[in-house]
Write a protein that binds this DNA or RNA. Sequence first.
DNA 1: AATTAGACCAACCGCACGCGA
DNA 2: TTCGCGTGCGGTTGGTCTAAT
Length: 398
Amino acid sequence: MGRSPCCDKVGLKKGPWTPEEDQKLLAYIDEHGHGSWRALPAKAGLQRCGKSCRLRWTNYLRPDIKRGKFSLQEEQIIIQLHALLGNRWSAIATHLPKRTDNEIKNYWNTHLKKRLAKMGIDPITHKPKSDALLSTDGQSKHAANLSHMAQWESARLEAEARLARESKLRSHSLQHQLGPPGFAPSGSASTSAAQLVNKTAWNSTTGWTKSSEGNSAVLNTGLGGAANLESPTSTLTFSENARPIMSKGLGVSSMPVIEFVGTTSGSSEAGIIKEEGEQEWKGLGSSTNLPDYKEGIENSLSFTSSLHDMTISMEGGWTPESLRPNSSHIDVANVMEEGFTNLLLNDSTDKSLSDSGKESDENSGGSGDGSDYYEDNKNYWNSILNLVNSSPSDSPMF
DNA sequence: AATTAGACCAACCGCACGCGA
DNA sequence: TTCGCGTGCGGTTGGTCTAAT
């Protein structure tokens, strides 16, 4: 099955778009929607291929795009999600309202990757580079667990992103029936998402529920949700003790289940991973920036909690207001104290180096037994999992 | 002021995948 | 089941801008 060219390239314009071309594309989509991208250029009177039009629209002309400098919170989200998903820019973009995957990708490559590298953190693995020197026994098991988690969540996120995109397309089509493009009517996205979910056999209950006690939240994702185990289910539970229990399976009972048990407070509560990972982070004290990294991770954890709460509170559909630049999703995030990202913004490696030792002692109580680094690691992944579970379907993007 | 190097980012390229005939 | 089409995605390129020399 060969790949057909997206269009006849003879006579078609390439390179930067002119304002006139932008205007034509905008006017056409405003009036007709994009429909088939391949057919669009001819109808719109553009000497471009459909692919080029689609890129121009999705990366630049779309009305719900926020341009300009990335906020600290956005940087933080990118870093955390990249730790989990890798270069899955579209999946990452579903968690960053109004940002395109291309923009995020560019920002990562030109800014964040360099900063992490400068801090001595491998931008690919998100681990201190000195980690590579550690023994591989327990670490490989732990890494394998995390890798499984990441892969599974990645797949889930992809599916959700796909559904969300389709949902957006559907709601966009709906808008052309109901009114001008740009903002989705409140609740329309979730409605169409549910339709799609049904269509693709995904359970439409995907999303957060919050216990009446208010101190725990459960995300049921997948086919059937928690109450219906006839199909694949992902359940993440966060309690007051921030003790996530994530079980994953692909079937009723015969499928393998990976359980992740951890805690963010008190090293006395040993989880499965802790036993294996107890020694993993030993010796990392030599890594100059880790204490700062730890501090940031802890802050990020509180941030993701805020994000999570905010996500819950905004269940029930998005309004045009929620799509505006000063909408609450950013305001809430801005409440977060500077921390993790601050450290990334710190250009002075020397400062981090000199500060890190002191903070390390303060934060760890001088134990220096390496368990702190285990906690760091765990907190880091917990925070990422928290972040991931602010479901894309709840994102203002959709 | 001129030149060079690096940073930034819009846009392109080609592969992968889903869907329908 | 196969094939072609349409589209999404991630990697890469190349033009422009800016800072350094």
